[in-house]
Amino acid sequence: MAIYNKLFIVDDDELFVVIAKHLLQELDFAEIVMEFPDGEDAFEFFNENDPSQYPDIIILDINMKRMDGWEFLNAIRPLNIPKDIKIYITSSSIDPADLEKAKADPYVDSFISKPLSAEKLKEIARDKK
């Protein structure tokens, strides 16, 4: 049985998404995995769908072209998204300012440096329990 029901990957790096989906499947991490190539597409999903369609967890890249992770977080705040959705920020660059910003954001659960690994996903799974 999967750890989470629904997980969103919001990332414009196609290789990252392929690897993440493989790891998620291998670990039976989520029943449903949906991917969005940028924050704008993910925001549209939240804006157009009922909260019952929202994910349990989001893996959110910071650096994307159309709408980055920070812009996505700012866009969903007025929608009153439930705070029980776990949001994990990801980035390949570990900028101390991004780490501090992630720690200070009430919607962000943690910061995960890329590449994503089975160990990092297992750590997220342990946090759920």
Rank of each mutant, 00 (worst) to 15 (best):
A2M: 13
A2L: 03
A2G: 06
A2C: 10
I3Q: 00
N5Y: 13
N5E: 15
K6I: 04
F8G: 09
I9T: 06
D12R: 03
E14T: 15
F16N: 14
F16H: 13
V17W: 04
L23E: 13
L24V: 10
E26Q: 14
L27Y: 00
L27S: 07
F29I: 09
F29N: 05
F29L: 05
F29V: 04
E31W: 01
E31P: 02
V33M: 05
V33Q: 04
E35Y: 04
E35G: 11
P37W: 00
P37G: 10
D38K: 02
E40Y: 12
F43M: 05
F46P: 07
F46W: 05
F46S: 10
F46I: 12
N47A: 13
E48A: 14
E48Q: 15
E48I: 01
N49C: 13
D50E: 15
D50L: 07
I59T: 12
L60T: 04
D61G: 05
M64H: 09
M67T: 10
D68K: 08
F72D: 07
L73V: 12
L79K: 12
L79I: 09
P82I: 05
P82Y: 02
I85S: 05
I85P: 01
I87S: 07
I87H: 01
I87Q: 03
Y88Q: 02
I89W: 01
T90Y: 01
T90S: 10
S92F: 06
S92C: 12
S93W: 02
I94Y: 07
D98P: 08
E100I: 11
D105Y: 06
D105S: 08
Y107T: 07
V108A: 09
S110T: 05
S113I: 08
P115Q: 06
L116M: 15
K120F: 00
K120V: 01
K122V: 02
I124F: 00
A125Q: 05
A125C: 03
A125R: 00
R126C: 00
R126G: 03
R126D: 10
D127Q: 13
D127M: 10
D127E: 14
K129G: 13
